[in-house]
Amino acid sequence: MPDAAVIETSGLEKTYDGVPALRGLDIHVPAGSICGLLGRNGAGKTTTLKILLGMARPTGGTARVFGAPADSPQASVEIRRRVGFVSEEKDLYGSMSVDEIIRFTATFFPRWRTDLEERFVRRFELPRDRKVKALSRGTRTKLALLLALCRGAELLLLDEPTSGLDPAMAEDVLRALVGEVADGRTTILFSSHQITEVDQIADRVAVVDRGRAVLSGPLDELKEGFRRVRLVFDGDAPVPAFRSPGVRRVRRDGAVLSLLTSGGADAVLDEARTLHPVSVDVTPLTLKEIFLETTTED
C-alpha cells in the first residue's frame, strides 16, 4: 500500500478567546513513519494533538486522521478506537492497581493484545499489585504506554513521552516505540523537547513555530538542506550581498565570513567562489541547530 497519510492537516487554525494558537498548520504523516513534533513552548504542539484526537475543534482549515475529518463527532469515535494517546499529565486512576487498570482498559478494546501486555509488563517491570499512585513517574509513563500499545492502536499520539524519565527508562520507551513501528502496523507522532531522541528514532519531523509548520518532511532531507558555510579571505572579508535564496544569518568577522544556508548550498558556493576566498568550509548542522535557527522567541 503506498504512502497513505495517517495524519493530514491543511491550513489548520485554532484560536482560543481571540488568541491564535494555530495559524495555518500543514503537516503530513504517512503510514508506518515516526514523526517528531518539535517546537518551543506555546508553539501549538499540544493544541495540534488535541485537535487530532477530537478534543478541540479547529477554527479554520482541516485535520484528517485515517482520511476522516478529526472534528466530525461520528468519525472521531472511530478515530479514537484506533489511536493511543499518552499525554504529559499521564492521568490514570490512582487508586487502582496496575493490574486493575490494565483489566479495566482492556474491557473497552475487543482487540486487546494480551501477548503485548505480557511482554511489556515483563520488559517494563510493572508491579501488577502496586497502586498506580504509588508508582514513580517513569513507571507511570511506561504503564500509560502499555495501555496505548496493547489496544492495538494503529496511531500513537505522544506528548513528551520521555519527559522526567532517566536515560535508561527513556531508552526503554524509545526501544518499545521503534519495535512497534517495525511491524509496519503502527504510526507514531510524538512531541518532544529531547531533540537527540527525535534525531535518533524519527524519520520525519515537523517543526512548529508560532502556530505554523516552518519545516516539515523527511528528517534526512531536512538535514541535507541546511549547511554552514565558512569563507576565509586574504585580508578583510568583503561585505556580502548574496542573491541565492535560503541564505540566513550572515556574519562577518575580520577575514572570516560565515553563513547558514537552508536549501541549495551549491548555488551559494558558486556565488561564494566569485568572491575568491582563500578557503571554503561546508559543514552540516545538527537538528538542534536547525531547530534554534528556524524557531523564534515569542
Partner: peptide, 8 residues
C-alpha cells in the same frame, strides 16, 4: 530494537 533507531 538493539540500536534503538527507526526500522525504516
Amino acid at each position: 530494537e538493539e540500536l534503538v533507531i527507526n526500522s525504516n
